[in-house]
């Protein structure tokens, strides 16, 4: 009896996962086959669910004419650097806010939380002036700075939650062994925190990866542009250049899919380690 239930459960699980997979992948599938259609077949009726002729002209177009390699590089650079800085800043702030209680701690958490409610554009012109005064306009540093700013509150909140679930006895033991607090944090706590840190890192990376508004406003230079801005240029007055757009969408998804696959390993490792003494 029990065994049959188990099999039914497994089958049910597989069905649910498969259905969800179809729901999620269909738009991507549509982008992929659109990107492989010759330009004059994209809007051909009846709709083609598989290209009649496979063509790579859209990819050639975005690399040869639109210089996508530059934008991909810029986006990777900015997203990774900003996500790395965010991790350093918020591992410290999240840890401190999880471990110590001090005056102003809860007010600070609230202040962080409230930042999430503020629509970006309020105060944007002031922010633009600040960037101008600091000489950061038209430099990628402006985006790295502002992406970091935007992510600090959320990542602090998230990481604090993960730190709270790890018993403080862990680093106390290490500190008795002679470690400083910082090295105890680095050598004992962080390895145990990998699921949370990976998830936070993915989150931070992805937020940076698809940010559009500030990237349009702060960067003028063709060679410093990011991927979302370049993709937005395919929207013209007449129509959306779906050939280029679909190819660019497919390319922009690849790094994230890889990132998820890599971070998966850390999440699994964290699982085995997370089980240490409760």
């Amino acid at each position: 009896m029990k065994k049959q239930w188990k099999i039914a459960g497994k089958a049910g699980k597989a069905v649910v996962l498969a259905l969800y997979f179809i729901f999620m992948v269909f738009p991507l599938y549509w982008m992929v086959i659109t990107s492989l259609k010759p330009r004059n077949e994209i809007f051909a009726l009846p709709l083609q669910y598989w290209p009649k002729h496979i063509s790579f002209e859209n990819y050639v177009q975005i690399f040869k004419i639109s210089k996508f390699q530059i934008y991909l590089g810029n986006s990777l650079f900015i997203s990774l650097v900003a996500a790395a800085i965010v991790l350093v800043v918020t591992i410290l702030s999240g840890y401190v806010l999880a471990r110590f209680s001090f005056r102003g701690a809860s007010q600070l958490m609230l202040a962080f939380f409230i930042t999430q409610m503020i629509p970006l554009f309020i105060g944007f012109s002031t922010l633009y002036m600040m960037m101008s005064r600091m000489g950061l306009l038209n430099k990628q540093a402006s985006l790295i700075l502002m992406y970091t700013v935007g992510l600090v509150p959320f990542c602090t909140i998230m990481l604090r939650g993960f730190f709270q679930r790890i018993p403080s006895s862990l680093e106390e033991a290490a500190m008795i062994d002679g470690c400083s607090r910082l090295s105890a944090l680095w050598r004992v706590i962080i390895p145990v925190m990998m699921p949370g840190i990976s998830a936070t890192f993915i989150f931070a990376f992805v937020q940076n990866w698809n940010e559009l508004f500030m990237a349009i406003m702060f960067i003028d230079n063709e060679t410093s542009k990011t991927l979302p801005v370049a993709m937005n240029s395919f929207i013209t007055k007449f129509d959306i250049d779906w050939g280029s757009m679909s190819a660019a969408t497919v390319l922009s998804v690849i790094p994230t899919v890889i990132l998820f696959a890599i971070c998966q390993r850390f999440i699994v490792e964290g699982l085995t380690q997370g089980a240490v003494k409760g």
């Binding site: 530059i70 590089g73 810029n74 650079f77 790395a84 038209n138 003028d220 063709e222 410093s224």
Partner: peptide, 21 residues
């Protein structure tokens, strides 16, 4: 990975911003 990516990419991206500055 981050550091490597930064190292390999910064070369091309910083030259562009420099000119603009």
């Amino acid at each position: 990975v981050t550091v490597l990516a930064v190292g390999s990419l910064s070369a091309c991206s910083s030259s562009g911003t420099q000119k603009a500055a």
